[in-house]
């Protein structure tokens, strides 16, 4: 089962590999041209969108579109197991990419004070990983609902982007009330990560139900 999921993700692995190379180049440039400093951290905001669109959205809908669900789901493996492995591989790719980028950016960024509106906020602690999980789950849920990859991709894009705006607004609101310092900002980050992962869990369950329990058309 894992073999099939990995094999199907080969193209997407190459895509993530490209991001690895791109980010390496970007961070390298920052090291040698201090004018560009902070760029790699700023561009990071788009990475969850990439996860939602390219890792989450195709998972179920690509099978429906090409009819291969009729092959995959009539082997000696339950639909739930099939679903689980697809999600595990997509999540692993997203988390590995996140770990690589956040380590690399941390490496090239000079000393900084962590604040709510700093570019490093989304790149430190559990926050980037929670967004990666949330983005994949958003794409996956739209994939299971619409059963159309392009529609799911668009919905995932706008869904994750809108969530980022909402999260930013809520962060700023809490900052106005609590004035987070560098020492206790991890609390805010953990709360944000906790909410994201909880919503992702619900979305993942819904996607599983729609895949394993609803009839394919």
């Amino acid at each position: 089962m894992s073999w099939l999921a990995f094999r199907q993700h080969r193209g997407r692995m190459i895509g993530m590999g490209l991001i690895f190379v791109l980010w390496g180049g970007l961070c390298g440039m920052e090291l040698y041209a201090p004018v560009l400093s902070g760029m790699s951290a700023m561009v990071f905001a788009y990475i969850p969108l990439v996860f939602g669109v390219f890792l989450g959205a195709p998972i179920v809908s690509r099978e429906y579109e090409r009819g291969t669900h009729q092959f995959a789901w009539t082997q000696s493996v339950s639909r739930s197991q099939w679903f689980l492995w697809q999600v595990v591989v997509a999540l692993s790719l997203a988390l590995a990419t996140t770990a690589y980028i956040s380590t690399l950016v941390g490496f090239v960024t000079p000393e900084f004070t962590l604040e709510v509106d700093s570019v490093m906020y989304p790149l430190t602690g559990s926050v980037p990983y929670a967004w990666a999980v949330f983005a994949v789950a958003t794409g996956l849920l739209w994939s299971a609902i619409t059963r159309r990859t392009t529609v799911a991709m668009a919905a995932a894009f706008f869904g994750v982007a809108a969530s980022q705006f909402i999260a930013e607004g809520m962060r700023n609101r809490s900052e106005a009330v609590s004035h987070w310092t560098a020492a206790d900002i991890w609390i805010l980050q953990s709360v944000e990560a906790g909410i994201l992962v909880a919503i992702a869990g619900v979305m993942g369950l819904a996607a599983w139900w729609l895949t394993a329990r609803r009839d394919p058309a």
């Binding site: 090409r66 009819g67 291969t68």
Partner: peptide, 17 residues
């Protein structure tokens, strides 16, 4: 499912495999 095999009408297979 181990005891049942199925081939759908359009013979779905993974095209890139």
């Amino acid at each position: 499912l181990e005891r049942v095999a199925y081939v759908a009408q359009d013979k779905p297979l993974y095209d890139e495999f």
